[in-house]
Amino acid sequence: MDLDRPNIEEYLPSEAIQESNEKLHLRDLLDISPTLTEAAGAIVDDSFTRCFKSNPSEPWNWNVYLFPLWCFGVVVRYGILFPVRVLVLTIGWIIFLSSFIPAHFLLRSHDKWRKKIERYLVELICSFFVASWTGVVKYHGPRPSMRPKQVFVANHTSMIDFIVLEQMTAFAVIMQKHPGWVGLLQSTILESVGCIWFNRAEAKDREIVARKLRDHIQGVDNNPLLIFPEGTCVNNHYTVMFKKGAFELGCTVCPIAIKYNKIFVDAFWNSKKQSFTMHLLHLMTSWAVVCDVWYLEPQNIRPGETPIEFAERVRDIISVRAGLKKVPWDGYLKYSRPSPKHRERKQQRFVESVLQRLEKKGK
């Protein structure tokens, strides 16, 4: 007897066990259409998983005529463009650090001038980053200005969203705290423009961030505040639910729509599969990063409108402008696994469906 094999009789009612074995057929145990339908639907139409999948480009070097062209392109991208881009980025860092460090430490008594210079230098280094990808960015609409009681919100595809927007305007961004060299830049250089960091796993950080947000938007001289309300990177085909935090501050919300053209490279950053360093290398070895940025009409909460409804209305505006599909998912589910209780409920429903079927056959 196989001890590891489940005993189906433990799940059968006593009346069914007493019945003749001829009345118990395999099809009775497998007739679980609702469960199978649910499982098939989850496999075929998992709109949540699709939000965070990279879409690999279709191979085109499939014959003897195109393969040499593909090889030539690889040589150009890795042998010529990549070294030039590394050189451009290196020159950018030399210029930036040789200017930022003296300004940061020598102009502490001249706070206004120091902030102005640091703001310009952050925009400059972001421009060098965009140049290192041969970035072709087209901006639509009026450039953001420094005003109190306003916040900018944008859809989120990669951390380079911040760089693309920052090269035009020195935003103070709300961002997850990262490890490594990115975290070092966050805690040193980017804090100079008023950026706010949080740890997604720390519940107490939410209260601290909420307080900092309210304080920041009141300042006349503070840099414009930028928030990615999805809370995670989405693959630029969809938008997930916007967190309501940016929409309950009682200020004007300025939507920004970002759409990447994937003709040369997919700019989506899957942080679970790829470090940001490798993501940058991927961009720097591509032909170009092409995208459009739309600064859309500012929005205010309407009378009787809740922050959640306000967030959905702004998400509609961004999704329509960027041609993105809305899905009713919370992006934070990307970082969590189904709870044991959820799995147990599913298992219990499955057992109950089998038992109900057997009881009907036993009558």
Rank of each mutant, 00 (worst) to 15 (best):
L124Y: 05
A246G: 01
C291M: 06
E359H: 07
R315C: 00
V209K: 01
R302A: 02
K116C: 11
C71K: 12
Q176L: 13
A246R: 01
I163T: 05
I91W: 10
D221V: 09
R337W: 13
L281Q: 04
G141S: 03
T134F: 05
G304N: 15
S271T: 12
L124V: 15
E230M: 10
W329L: 09
K112Y: 10
F152Y: 06
I125A: 03
C71I: 14
S339Y: 04
W93Y: 03
Y238K: 02
W294V: 07
E312F: 08
P303Y: 01
F105G: 09
C51D: 09
L3V: 13
S57G: 14
I43R: 13
P68M: 01
Y332D: 09
A131S: 12
R321H: 11
V137W: 01
G73F: 02
E305C: 04
K243N: 13
T232I: 07
L66G: 03
L121V: 06
N222P: 00
P303E: 04
K360P: 08
G331A: 00
V130E: 02
P56R: 04
H216Q: 07
F72E: 07
L24Q: 15
K212D: 15
N7F: 12
N55G: 05
S286G: 07
K346C: 02
P142F: 10
L225M: 02
L87A: 14
S187M: 11
L3T: 15
G250I: 10
E9K: 14
F72G: 10
